[in-house]
Design a protein around this nucleic acid. Structure first.
Lengths: 245, 245
DNA sequence: CTCGAAAGTTAACGGTGTTCACAACTGCTG
DNA sequence: CAGCAGTTGTGAACACCGTTAACTTTCGAG
């Protein structure tokens, strides 16, 4: 172990970071250009002008590499969502949430393979780690959405579902402090989950092409859904229609 | 070519069908017991006491085998949904649709790996056929849901979204006769797609474990969503709450 | 300058999908 | 019944995959 182990930006350390990043970059390029099945240790190494075992100096194996790639993509998505939010600094949380959701769809459509890697797989597919990684990196992105919902909640426009039975409330309590920062009202978590399933369903179905047969342009459906979600959250501004959907 | 080529149930033909079915059965067992990555030509052959190249007498390759397995699972799901519907023959379409949706969730939770194979992957992942197969087999199941929605529509309780712009309507027209049987009203297709995205989102998020961190029992959320969907469809019977969600 | 850690190589093992040449079996036809 | 053709299955082989082990090279810190 070098005596300058704690050094922030040692030369050695820096080129290593670059290598780590290039591996991920190459893996992502393969994912985008050739599909999920093509992001392989040997292919990445080949692409980088080295041999597969060399990659083991950087990642413990194929699984860990994919995991790292997933993490970085979660981060990128989180940054994109936050940027969409900050693009309208003076807007209320409703408008900002709307823009964030639109950015999610935009990102997913622009990066369908990446979206698939992040959201199309079971979180535990017998190979991903128990959940800590999925939590940390996955919730840098989820936190952006949740935070806006909390702010909407603070505005007082959200009215929670009435019939929350006891068991339901109990498990929500469990999650409360699990979220960093302020204590999140239980009902907000419920609303968050409900809205997320709608958002996820709409975007996933579109990105995965499940309704290619029916819709050549699913954007109107998405905007309608967005209206509906924001109405459910009590936001009245920026509404584009007043249908149930 | 044998002279009895057209024979319905020739001996030869029958044992072949059995072999085809056993291959699928074995593949499914591997999928369930060992995960998606384990459903491999060699593993299936090994499990059946033969060698991998022998399977090529039955399926053109790994892709085709997976495709066939997917098709059969779609069929099984369609049968399960239809059975749930027919379990309440005297009930109205609203109640029947409710039971069908519940059955979808039940089936997905009981067969998560199969559900993942059917719905977690992009329909065209650079390896599935263009779409004809996904259409035919995928819509024996979707048709069950659509048919109930059409019946609800005939009941007159469904009110379509008002703001359907022209382009939106145009593409819906395209789909109209693409569906077998009676001409389906355009708005019904819209409602169908909208409801399907909600249903899919709720079930998929639960099955894939995206919200394991937050919910130990997602059933209340599902029931709330179901209430909401059926309300949107104009069905008033069997409602369990009156919240937005 | 030295030396030890890090980076990268080659070789190898077992696994995969896939192809091809070949053997065995089965059942129809002359 | 004999023979023949189609069907079914095998074994060997190829290329690719993840992974491990032993080895060489590189390079920075003391």
């Amino acid at each position: 172990m070098s005596s300058t182990a704690g050094t922030r930006t040692g030369r050695r350390h820096r080129v290593r970071e670059e290598a780590l990043a290039e591996i991920l970059r190459t893996g992502r390029r393969l994912l985008v250009e050739e599909g999920p099945g093509a992001v392989t240790l040997r292919a990445i190494a080949r692409e980088m002008g080295m041999t597969a075992p060399g990659l083991y100096r950087y990642y413990a194996g194929h699984r860990d590499l994919i995991q790292a790639l997933t993490s970085s993509l979660y981060d990128e998505l989180a940054v994109a969502l936050a940027a969409a939010r900050d693009r309208h600094p003076s807007a209320g949380p409703g408008r900002q949430l709307r823009e964030v959701c639109r950015e999610l769809r935009r990102w997913a459509l622009a990066n369908p393979r990446e979206f698939g890697l992040l959201f199309a797989k079971p979180v535990t597919d017998a190979d991903t780690t128990p959940g800590t990684v999925a939590h940390d990196s996955g919730w840098r992105f989820g936190g952006v959405i949740l935070e806006l919902m909390v702010r909407l909640w603070h505005g007082g426009t959200v009215h929670p579902p009435a019939g929350l039975d006891a068991a339901w409330v109990a498990q929500l309590e469990e999650v409360r402090e699990h979220l960093s920062g302020e204590p999140v009202p239980l009902e907000v978590i419920y609303v968050f989950v409900a809205c997320w399933t709608r958002l996820y369903g709409t975007v996933a179905v579109e990105v995965f092409g499940h309704l290619d047969f029916a819709l050549t342009d699913p954007e109107p459906l998405f905007e309608h859904t967005l209206d509906d979600i924001l109405t459910a959250l009590g936001d009245t501004a920026g509404r584009m229609s007043s249908d149930v959907f």
